[in-house]
Design a protein around this nucleic acid. Structure first.
Lengths: 220, 220
DNA sequence: GAAAATATACCGCATCTGTGGTAATCGGTG
DNA sequence: CACCGATTACCACAGATGCGGTATATTTTC
C-alpha cells in the first residue's frame, strides 16, 4: 500500500480476450488498455491455447467470441468456468443466435453483448460484470426474459388456483411436509391437507408429483 | 415532420404508475412528466382499479409495484398482459425477493428494477423497455442469468447415479408409484424401494420431492 | 483375485399422503 | 338474502413412502 503504483495495478480489472479476428482483437486490446480502470493481461486467437493456459491465468473478466475455428466460445466457457467460478465470461458475438445465448448462459457466461454495440457499451459491460451484474444487449435481455414467459404454464387449470393455493403448492414443490408448510404459514396441518386436496381437484391430479409437474413444468 | 410539436406529442411514451405509496407515486409522476419524451397518463394506488380500467387505458409502459394491499403486482400483470401483450410492464419494487422476480417474469413483466436504483436509471429503464429491451437492475440480471446455470449444471452427486438408478428416479419424477415402476421394469416393488433408498443416500436427500428437484432442477 | 459397487429381494415399523366425510367463517355475486 | 368459493379445521382409514435391518448374485474396479 506504500506504493500507489502497485496499488493501482492491483485494482485494475484484469481482462483476457479470446477472438480469432486479428484486427478486432487488436482493436479491443487497445480500447481496453486506454481505460484507466482495466487492462488486457493476455489475448488469444484461438480457444485451445486459452483452455490450456487458463489455470495459470490471473484474470477477472474474459471477453469471449463464439464463432471460432476449433474450440468455439461455449466449449471454452464450459471447460474453464468450473475451474475458477469467480472468473466472469462476457460473450461478445456477431449474431444474436437464440441457441447460442442460452447455451452460453447455461455453460456459465454471465454477460452477452453484440459486436454491433458501441465500444462504450463493451467497456460498461466489463465494469458491470466485474461488479456482480450481468450486462446484456437490449435485444439479448428481452430474449432471456421472454424465455421465462414461454416456459410458464400453458395449462389453464393452474391459473384457477387461488393465491393461497399457489403459495402452498409452491412450498410443497420445495419438498416440505404438510407439517412444515403448516408451521411456515401458521396453519393447522389439517388445513394444509384440505388445501392440497382442493388443489388436486382443480388440477385433476391425484398425487404430489403430478401436481408439481403440472404447476412447475420441467423439460424431462 | 413539418410540425415538430405534434411529432413530439405523438412519440411521447405513455406511462401508467401502479403504486400504493402516495408519496412515491406522486414523486414518480413528477419525475416522468419532467421528461420531454414521456408522460404519465394515469396513476393507480391499488391493483383493482388498474385491472378494471386497463381495457380502456391507452398506455405503453406500466410501472408496477409488487407489495400492494389487495391485488399484488404479479396478479395485476397476469390478468392484464394477456389482454394487450404489447404493453410493457416494468416492475419497480423494494426487495430483490427471488420468488417475485421469476414469478413476475413468468407473468409477463419485461423489466425489473429496484426502488433503490437512481431516478435516472428508472427513466432509462422506461426508454429501454419501450425500445424492445428488458431493463433490469444489476443484481436482478445476475440472478436471472444464474438461473440458467443452476438449471444446466446439476449437482455432481447426480452424475454418480447408476444407469438403473437414473432410470428409476426418472420414472419416479413422472409421478409413478413404486408398484407402477416395478411393473414397468419387471422388478419387485421391494427392489424399487431399495433402489430409491440408495438414490436418496447418494443424493443426500430424504424424500421423493427433494430427489426429483435435485436431479431435474426447476426454476421455482 | 479381492474389494467395492450394483442389482436384486424381503421384513417391519413409523410416518406421510390421498381420500372419504363434515363444518364454521368470511367475502363477493346474483 | 341465499349461494358459491376460499380458508380454516377436524376424524378416520387405506395405501404410499422413508428407513432400520438383512441377503445373494453379478459387475466393476483396483
Amino acid at each position: 500500500m506504500s506504493f500507489p503504483y502497485i496499488y493501482f495495478m492491483n485494482t485494475k480489472i484484469k481482462v483476457a480476450i479470446v477472438e480469432d479476428d486479428t484486427e478486432l482483437r487488436n482493436l479491443l486490446e487497445k480500447l481496453v488498455n486506454k481505460q484507466p480502470d482495466m487492462h488486457v493481461i493476455k489475448t488469444f486467437s484461438n480457444g485451445k491455447p486459452f483452455i490450456s493456459e487458463f489455470k495459470m491465468l490471473d484474470v477477472d473478466v474474459v471477453i469471449m467470441d463464439i464463432n471460432m475455428p476449433g474450440k468455439n466460445g461455449i466449449e471454452c466457457v464450459t471447460e474453464t468456468k468450473i475451474q475458477k467460478p469467480h472468473v466472469q465470461f462476457l460473450i461478445s458475438t456477431s449474431f444474436e443466435n437464440h441457441e447460442y445465448i442460452f447455451q452460453a448462459l447455461c455453460a456459465g457466461a454471465t454477460g452477452y453483448i453484440l459486436k454491433s454495440d458501441k465500444p462504450s457499451e463493451l467497456l460498461d459491460a466489463i465494469r458491470t460484470i466485474n461488479e456482480g451484474g450481468s450486462p446484456m444487449s437490449m435485444q439479448i435481455a428481452r430474449l432471456v426474459v421472454n424465455s421465462f414467459q414461454a416456459q410458464s404454464q400453458p395449462d389453464d387449470s393452474v391459473n384457477s388456483l387461488s393465491a393461497r393455493q399457489k403459495e402452498i403448492i409452491h412450498l410443497l414443490a420445495q419438498g416440505m411436509f404438510y407439517k412444515e408448510i403448516s408451521e411456515r404459514l401458521f396453519l393447522s396441518p389439517m388445513t394444509v391437507r384440505t388445501h392440497i386436496r382442493n388443489i388436486y381437484e382443480k388440477l385433476h391430479v391425484n398425487s404430489k408429483t403430478e401436481a408439481i409437474n403440472k404447476v412447475f413444468p420441467r423439460t424431462i
